[in-house]
């Protein structure tokens, strides 16, 4: 079995990675400043990138969650439900993460007993349960029409629209950086090593007295909380929350982004998410009725010809130069 996805084929020096990250940050800020509507797209991309970071953790253990967008939906609906009573964005963000993390713990206790396809399918099933409930409990959720989020406050202030867009963008960028560093540190720690052990030699891990389930559970809860943060950011950006967020195709997109970006670095998810959102909006603008096909084709090309994802391409170039 080749290990192209979850372990980088070529190591990039930490300095190089940091430089790339800084360049990336400068690039998104510049793009958001130069093209106003891109600010919106990039905020969503950064948010999704945070969720994909969570997927990255699970991928390191060789597990694919095909239902991860349920945590995104939980975060988003936390904002939708609580905003009328508690419009403070700076409180809603940690709350969304905490509630999603809590769900992650409960669901995690159950799903970490399973591996591979069963792990993926169970997550899928649970996300579909959530999707169906969000869609069905009309009196509570307004069904497929979703809930509009309005009147958010930031640190007690209600900025005008352009400022609010910049604030959300800044929050997303800051959180992306924070979680990127966190995941990077986590993967380098013994816990992260143990995670990789689940993928390669799980039984050996247990011989060493490490509980694989506990290792996976802690990663699962972290990834759920990151999904929750991503969801709150998405809700604050689009300011409209629908059950579609929890549909299985949305989860598929997150995994798509993970592979597109490449799982070799914490930068991968953000590369992937930015590329994904840009391809999506430009494909949708150019050929409004065949954008799915274009995305699908991009995904196929990446898997067949650059299985390390965008990060893999970058790392390959950088490595060659050295």
């Amino acid at each position: 079995m080749s290990t192209t996805v979850t372990a980088p084929a070529r190591r990039v020096a930490p300095i190089g990675e940091a430089l790339l990250a800084l360049l990336g940050i400068a690039a998104v800020i510049l793009a958001a400043w130069a093209v106003p509507w891109l600010k919106f797209v990039l905020t969503v991309a950064l948010a999704k990138g945070i969720a994909v970071l969570g997927i990255l953790l699970l991928l390191r253990a060789g597990q694919v969650s095909f239902g991860h967008s349920m945590f995104l939906a939980i975060g988003a609906y936390t904002v939708a439900f609580l905003a009328p009573a508690l419009p403070e964005a700076l409180l809603l963000l940690p709350l969304g993460a905490a509630i999603a993390g809590l769900f992650g713990l409960v669901i995690g206790l159950f799903v970490v007993r399973y591996r591979d396809i069963f792990f993926g399918m169970l997550n899928l099933a649970l996300s579909m349960v959530l999707y169906s409930l969000l869609e069905k409990l009309y009196d509570l959720t307004k069904g497929t029409d979703g809930i509009r989020v309005s009147g958010l406050r930031f640190a007690g202030m209600t900025p005008d629209l352009p400022t609010q867009e910049w604030v959300t963008f800044g929050l997303a960028l800051g959180l992306a950086l924070l979680f990127g560093l966190l995941v990077r540190a986590y993967l380098g720690s013994p816990m992260g090593q143990a995670l990789a052990g689940i993928k390669t030699r799980e039984t050996r891990l247990e011989f060493m007295g490490v509980s694989a389930r506990r290792v996976l559970l802690s990663a699962y809860v972290m990834s759920a909380a990151m999904g929750g943060i991503a969801g709150t950011l998405v809700a604050m950006t689009s300011r409209h929350v629908t059950p579609q967020l929890a549909y299985w195709t949305s989860s598929g997109e997150l995994v798509f982004i993970a592979i597109l970006g490449g799982a070799g670095s914490a930068l991968g998810p953000f590369l992937g998410a930015t590329a994904f959102e840009l391809v999506r909006v430009y494909a949708a603008a150019a050929v409004a009725d065949a954008w799915q096909m274009i995305l699908g084709a991009v995904l196929l090309l990446v898997i067949l010809f650059a299985p390390g994802g965008l990060w893999g391409i970058l790392a390959g170039r950088l490595g060659r130069r050295r």
Binding site: V35, W37, V234, T242, Q244, R280, V281, A284, A285, W291
Partner: peptide, 21 residues
């Protein structure tokens, strides 16, 4: 033309694109 199919979060972005871009 903008497709409503991909969902509301996509659409609100597209509305902004139509106006701002």
């Amino acid at each position: 033309y903008v497709d409503e199919g991909p969902g509301t979060d996509h659409l609100v972005g597209e509305y902004r694109r139509l106006v701002q871009n």
